[in-house]
Design a protein around this nucleic acid. Structure first.
Length: 269
DNA sequence: TTCCAGGCGTATC
DNA sequence: GATACGCATGGA
């Protein structure tokens, strides 16, 4: 990792990293763009303001943080140990993947908290990104930060009414109940074989294949998980009617993120 | 106004 | 097991 300390800030040199493509691409819902090159957001309840200092040199400024916080939190959250350049070279053996990788080469998978990812993607179903952000924003405002499932233990459909999350409130309540009763344990699910992990998550009402896959990919860093939403379904029909290419094997989740961004922003409907 | 959104549960065959 | 339909809400 290449960084220098500048007073209360840290300058990080990091290739294959674009803030718009990573923080505003529908994998996390608590990053806010505050100006053309700057985002503010959180990992759990640790805040960060990060800006692109020099896009040509891939330099980023992490505002008002510490070396310790960088090493203990942000290096992991931004998946800095993974060589995305190497991954993109591998993926680019396939023509469509090659286009997707060069279209948005600064995508990274964020290693989010498992409960936050699971609950966020429960909220995401049959919903659009601005409204997902609105619901999560109201939740975090109410709790002064993203609540743990333990903090939410007494919530009911009625008490969650202020979220205006519609039919999804009952699904949140079921997830909270199954986790707090220890019927499900997210930490052990994260280590299960992928089929078992998926099946365990899908015992929650409102968690189907798509939400389970997103919880695995974005909340448990299971990069072999492959969420298929309406957009990725279009990708599969258009380019991969016979399945994904061999070169993405084992990292389908990361490939999916390039493809999702590619079709969603290039088709521009 | 109507359509749609990082889907899923349920009914029906 | 496949397919059709309703679902809360709000932006376009």
């Amino acid at each position: 990792m290449d960084y220098t300390i500048k007073g209360k800030d840290i300058l990080l040199k990091q290739p294959d990293f674009d803030l718009d493509q990573t923080l505003d691409c529908g994998q996390a819902f608590r990053w806010t763009k505050v100006d053309n090159s700057t985002y503010t957001g959180f990992f759990l309840n640790t805040p960060l303001t990060i800006s692109c200092e020099n896009s040509a040199d891939n330099v980023f400024r992490l505002h008002d943080t510490s070396e310790r916080e960088l090493l203990e939190t942000w290096a992991d959250y931004f998946d800095l140990a993974t060589d995305y350049g190497e991954l993109k070279r591998r993926f680019s053996e396939d023509e469509t993947m090659s286009k997707a990788c060069s279209y948005a080469g600064g995508i990274r998978i964020l290693k989010q908290d498992s409960w936050e990812a699971l609950s966020s993607f429960i909220i995401s179903q049959n919903n659009n990104i601005p409204r997902i952000k609105g619901i999560i924003g109201r939740l975090c405002e109410h709790y002064d930060g993203y609540p743990t499932h333990t903090q939410m233990k007494d919530e009911t459909v009625e008490s969650l009414g202020y979220l205006r999350s519609g039919f999804r409130a009952k699904y949140l309540v079921d997830a909270i109940s199954k986790i707090n009763s220890c019927e499900l344990d997210l930490k052990s699910i994260s280590k299960m074989p992928i089929d078992d992990a998926r099946a365990a998550l899908m015992t929650i009402k409102g968690v189907g294949p798509k939400v389970a896959e997103c919880a695995l990919l974005f909340g448990m860093y299971r990069i072999e998980a492959f969420p298929v939403d309406v957009w990725v379904k279009r990708v599969m029909e258009q380019w991969y009617p016979n399945g994904l290419p061999e070169c993405v094997k084992g990292c389908q989740g990361i490939a999916q993120q390039y493809l999702f961004h590619y079709i969603r922003t290039s088709s521009q409907t």
